[in-house]
Structures are given as C-alpha cells and as structure tokens.
Design a protein around this nucleic acid. Structure first.
Length: 684
DNA sequence: CTATTACTAAACACCA
DNA sequence: ATGGTGTTTAGTAATA
C-alpha cells in the first residue's frame, strides 16, 4: 500500500512535470489511454487496492474490447461499402479520436456526468487519479461510441443516396447491395444498442459497487457549494476570458494533438453535446436516460430545426449569435467556428458550469422547499413531501428507513454513552442522503481514508454539506480544534466556544455530544500544540503552531495523489490552463472546483484542508522546506504562486485560489455566512 | 512485528 | 451536590 502509493507518486512525478511544461499532460494521458487500449491503466491507478475499482477497470477493459470489435466490424462494413463504389467516410485506426467530426449533435453518450464524478469523490472511494483513469476510460468509450454513431449516420445518408439513385435510374438490379447495406445497418444498430447497454451496465456496476449512489429523485446534493459563488457577471467574465484567451492558448496546446480529453465535457467533441452530458436527467436522476442511437441518428436531419444550438436563424452557441440563413449554413458554421478546439472546449466547460449552477440553484431551492415543508409538518400529513429529501436536513425522514441502517439517525442522545454512534462515513465515507439508506452500520471506527486529503478537499467543497449532513468530517479532532481556534478573531477559544464551532460547522457534531466533546477535551489535553491560557474570564485555548506542524507529517502521508494535483495546479498559469484545470477538477477533483467557483464560504474549512495538504506536502517532499515554526509549508510555497500566477486579483476563483487565499486573504473569510461567529482575522 | 497516531471510553480531580 | 473543565489511562484500529 505504502509502497504502491510511493511508486505512484514517483511515476506521476514525471507526468506532473510534463504537464507543467506543456500544460497538456492530461491530454497526453488521455490519448495514451485511448491508444494503448488500457495498458497504461494499471500504471495510472496507483492505489489499486480498491477492489471495486479493479473490477471497474476490468469491466471497462471488457467494454473496450467489445467496442474495438465493433469498430473492426464497422470497418469491415466500410470496406464493403467502398467495394460497392460508394463514397464512405474515411477513418483510420490510429487516431480514432481525432477524426470525429463535430456535427453529430443528437446523441447522448453515457458518460459519467461531472456530478456523478463528484459524488464518487465525495464518497472518498477513489483518489483523483483513479477518477482520472475512470474519466479517461469513459472518454475512450464515448469516443468510440461517437465514431460508431457518426458512421451510422453516414450510412444512413448513403442508404438514402442509394435509394435515390435507384429511383432515378429506374429499377436496376441493385437490390442485393441495398439489402446488404440494410442488414449492415441493422447489425450496426444492434451494435450501438449493445454499446449503450454496455455503458449502462458500466454505470450500474458503478452503482452496485457503491461508487455511485445516485438514485432517482436524488439530486446531487453535495455539489451545492460548487457554483454558489458564481454570479452571472462572473460567468460573463469567464466567457470573455475564455474567448479572448483563445489565441494565447492555441499556441500552448494546439501542437499536441489538439484533442483535449481531460474532461468529460471536452471529450464530447461536438459542442452541442455538452448539454447532453450534463443534461439534467443525468445529473438529477442518476439514471442516464438511454436514447436509442437509432432514433437520434436517424432523426438528426429531421430534428435539425430543433437543434439546441440553432434558433431564429441565429447560432446559439454561447457568445456567438452568428446569423445563419438556414440550417445547413448553421451546420457549416457550427463545424467551422465551433469545431473541436480549445476555445470551444473551454466554452463548453463554462456552459457546463452554468448548467451546474442552475442545477444547484434548483437543488437548493428544492431543499429550501423541503425544509419549509418539513418545518410546517407537511411531511407528516403529506407523504409526497418526503420522497425528495434533498438534504440531510430532512434526515428526520430517514429515520424510519434508516433505522436498521445506521444508529446515526437515532434521536439526539448525548447523555447516553452507548456505543459511539459513528455514522456510516466509512466505506463511502460521505453519505449522500440516499446512500444512507443503503449503507449499513459500518462500525469500523476510522476509515482508512480518515485523514486523507481527498476528504479534506471534500470537506472544503462541501462545507455546506457537512453543515447539514450528518457526515463525519474527515478531519482529526486536532485539526478541527485548531481550525476552530484559528478561525476565531483572537485565535483563542474557550472550550465551550470550540464546542459551539463544532456543532455549528458540522451536523455530525450535533449529536453524540458526550462522545465528541470528550474527544475534544482529550485532544486539547493530549496534544502539546494546544495551549491553555488563563484569561480574565477563564481559560482559553490557543494553538502552538510549531507544535502542530511538528505532528503533521505523520498524518496523511498516505495519499500523494492530491499532492500531485496540487502541484500540478500550481504549475498552471495561463488563464486557459487555469480554466482547464478548474474544469478538470470539476470533473474529477472537487478541491479546485470549489475554489474555481470562488465560493466565499469555503474559506475557513479550506484552511483546515490546506493544512491537511500541508502535511501531505511536507511529508512527501522530503526536501521539505524546514517548515519554520508557525509557518505552514504552504506558506513556503507562496512565492511560487505569486510568480506563476500572473492573473489579476479577481482571478482568485482560479484553481489555485483555495490554496492561495486560504490562509492569507481576509476577504476570503469576510463573506462567510456563518451566523454567530464574528468575522475573524487572518491567521497569524 | 513494532511503533505511532487517532479515536473512544472512562475514571478522576478541580472548581464555581 | 452538580456540572463543566481538564488530565490521564486503557483499549482498539489503522497505518507506516
């Protein structure tokens, strides 16, 4: 385990550096992944100890093999067609991904949506790398599917051509050929269906393995903070940036195979597909609607006038509004102006964020409604209110179903020192409202991931989530206590204030008070880093940062994956790369997502998170900066940021902002929506 | 296998 | 006497 992750770090190290220099290592990875047909997969997954991940990989391998077979068959069909003298789409094997035209707009690849990815992450089952791999696999699948669909579409056209020819040329004995094509198409349709099923199975298996806990009617709640800070003007600004930075970024990444597959969004080369990938169905239901490729492909032309990117004679590509006389010219325009390039993908990504934000907004409002209804006891009288428990706030409604699942849902019993009600935070250590029904009372007290940075990222992102959901925060008590103290204006708190912070920040600590309060006291006494200071009004607790840093390295040495990501993100500096990184994070690494969205509320916990990362950094970087007392390693890294981040101050929403601002930007804390806590000063 | 760390539980002391 | 606070010990689990 340790050794594995160690090698992983090293092997990734080179990748990081590549990425740092070229800014495209993800692309390269993706391509490599696609080309080598999975051979690199095992390398990519460092923590292959997760059994289900391996299963997942196997499933994907199988799926890809099947897809390859299908591709071969497809090529045979092409060859047959060529023999028959028809003009056929030209594709070659070597670069399947690069040849995908952009015009197929009506398809719904069954990719894991970013939301689902987020959920997976929040369950802390997968490391970002593993997710990356999954993503890449998904992309490979999707690309292949795309090609198949494309080919299928062309076949359709050819068939029509043939028919036309026959009609014009009279009844010529071409029927055998036509039949052949027809049967080919039939077979092809079946293949497509198979593929759809495969991907669905893939998703199902994900769900089965607990990697995905999305269930119908369950919006992906934990995403809430994701785009909270996103206001329309910001979005517009983003657009501007994305558009303007186009030329700059072109030079950066065009040379490299111009195929950026680092995100699910991007991988859908056709711009209009973005909306499909993040289609509300997929994200809110978790049950990806299976659109039969047949219908979509067949009806492509017919449905052309309802093209989501075309309306009123205007291209509705965000920020475009080019006038297109008819649909044909629109298609031309689409293919020429919005082809697969960095700009389009970036725009795609922004659009994705927009949609996400809207979805989140919707989810929030729903949640609000739910809370209101719950508050008004609508729940008891109107069972319809409960079927959509959007948040754990409504976990009351779970008590019935979850009674067998988790003692956590028991009423507040602080005085009864019964078995520590450790919630189901373990296996999938973040519980989504739904998963709570499923997961049994895993009594393992500490998950192996208990202190893993990934959780830290998670917590930062899902601060709101932890506030409402009774999910055990993946921090040590010491970290949390320190966090609470550092957040206070005077950097000192009484024990009671610490208690209050805990309960305010984490729903989890609103119950089992006896247990965790004891633990808090225990930690305060035990750790030298907590210093008791006699005060006028009693004793307060402070943090001896030096002592705290001393004991950090031990904590999270386990997970270098995030470190890699952090470092990677540090090295990106161009706006586009920042955007790419952000959106990549969006799909696979929640940490930066939140930051990139500039959610002002994550400041405080971000600090804790940062500290966790610090520990990791310090530990892994054996060169490790003699972390001077009171200074976190992250601070030592600051110059790097400053140097490499030539972005304007507003660029705080960039992927780096979390790290950058966590400790040093008072502004960051000002906007927090914490009710009773006075706005605290910056640290140190 | 050992050492370390974190967590839980609990006993105990002190004090207002 | 009681509850809050603080200290300490013991046992368990995970990890390096």
């Amino acid at each position: 385990m340790m050794q594995e992750s160690g090698t992983e770090t090293k092997s990734n190290g080179s990748t990081i550096q590549n990425g740092a220099s070229s800014g495209n290592h993800l692309i390269e990875c993706s391509l490599r992944e696609v080309r080598s047909n999975g051979e690199t997969t095992s390398v990519e997954i460092g923590a292959a100890d997760l059994a289900h991940l391996q299963q997942q990989q196997q499933a994907l391998q199988v799926a890809r093999q099947l897809l390859l077979q299908q591709q071969q068959q497809q090529q045979q069909q092409q060859q047959q067609q060529q023999v028959s003298g028809l003009k056929s789409p030209k594709r070659n094997d070597k670069q399947p991904a690069l040849q995908v035209p952009v015009s197929v707009a009506m398809m719904t690849p069954q990719v894991i949506t970013p939301q689902q990815m987020q959920q997976i992450l929040q369950q802390q089952v997968l490391t970002p790398q593993q997710l990356q791999v999954l993503l890449q696999q998904q992309q490979a699948l999707m690309l292949q599917q795309q090609q198949l669909q494309e080919f299928y579409k062309k076949q359709q056209e050819q068939l029509q051509l043939q028919l036309l020819q026959q009609q014009h040329a009279g009844k010529q004995p071409k029927e055998p050929q036509q039949q052949q094509v027809a049967t080919q198409q039939l077979a092809f349709q079946q293949q497509l269906l198979q593929m759809q099923q495969l991907q669905q199975q893939h998703l199902l298996s994900l769900q089965r393995q607990g990697l995905l806990t999305i269930q119908p009617g369950q919006p992906t709640l934990p995403l809430q903070p994701l785009a909270q800070g996103m206001i329309p003007t910001e979005l517009q600004q983003l657009w501007k940036e994305v558009t303007s930075s186009h030329t700059a970024e072109e030079t950066a990444s065009n040379n490299h195979s111009s195929l950026d597959l680092s995100t699910t969004c991007v991988s859908s080369s056709a711009p209009s597909k973005t909306s499909l990938i993040i289609n509300p169905h997929a994200s809110t239901n978790g049950q990806l609607s299976v659109h039969t490729p047949k219908r979509e492909s067949l009806s492509h032309e017919e449905h052309s006038h309802s093209h989501p990117l075309y309306g009123h004679g205007v291209c509705k590509w965000p920020g475009c509004e080019a006038v297109c006389e008819d649909f044909q010219s629109f298609l031309k325009h689409l293919n020429s102006e919005h082809a697969l390039d960095d700009r389009s993908t970036a725009q795609c990504r922004v659009q994705m964020q927009v949609v996400q934000q809207l979805e989140l907004q919707l989810a929030k409002d729903k949640e609000r409604l739910q809370a209101m209804m719950t508050h008004l006891h609508v729940k008891s009288t109107e069972p319809k209110a409960t079927p959509q428990p959007l948040n754990l706030v409504s976990s009351v409604t779970l008590s019935k179903t979850a009674s067998e699942a988790s003692p956590q849902s028991l009423p507040h019993t602080p005085t009864t020192p019964t078995t520590p009600i450790t919630p189901v935070t373990q296996g999938p250590s973040v519980i989504t409202p739904t998963s709570m029904h499923n997961v049994g009372p895993i009594r393992r007290r500490y998950s192996d991931k208990y202190n893993v940075p990934i959780s830290s990222a998670d917590i930062a992102q899902n601060q709101e989530f932890y506030k409402n959901a009774e999910v055990r925060p993946p921090f040590t008590y010491a970290s949390l206590i320190r966090q609470a103290i550092l957040e206070s204006p005077e950097k000192q708190l009484t024990l009671n204030e610490i208690y209050n912070w805990f309960t305010r920040m984490f729903a989890y600590f609103r119950r089992n008070a006896a247990t965790w309060k004891n633990a808090v006291r225990h930690n305060l006494s035990l750790h030298k880093c907590f210093v008791r200071v006699e005060n006028v009004k009693g004793a307060v607790w402070t943090v001896d940062e030096a002592e705290f840093q001393k004991r950090r390295p031990q904590k999270i040495s386990g997970n270098p994956s995030l470190i890699k990501n952090i470092q990677t993100s540090h090295t990106y500096c161009s706006p586009l790369n920042a955007a790419l990184q952000a959106s990549m994070a969006e799909n696979s690494i929640p940490l930066y997502t939140t930051a990139s969205m500039g959610n002002p509320a994550l400041g405080n916990l971000a600090i804790a998170m940062k500290e966790e990362l610090n520990g990791a950094m310090e530990h892994t970087n054996s060169n490790g900066s003699d972390s001077s007392p009171g200074r976190s390693p992250m601070q030592a890294m600051h110059p790097v940021h400053v140097k490499e981040e030539p972005l304007d101050p507003d660029e705080n929403e960039g992927p780096l902002s979390l790290v950058t601002t966590a400790n040093h930007s008072p502004d960051f804390d000002h906007d927090r929506d914490y009710e009773d806590e006075p706005v605290n000063e910056d640290i140190e």
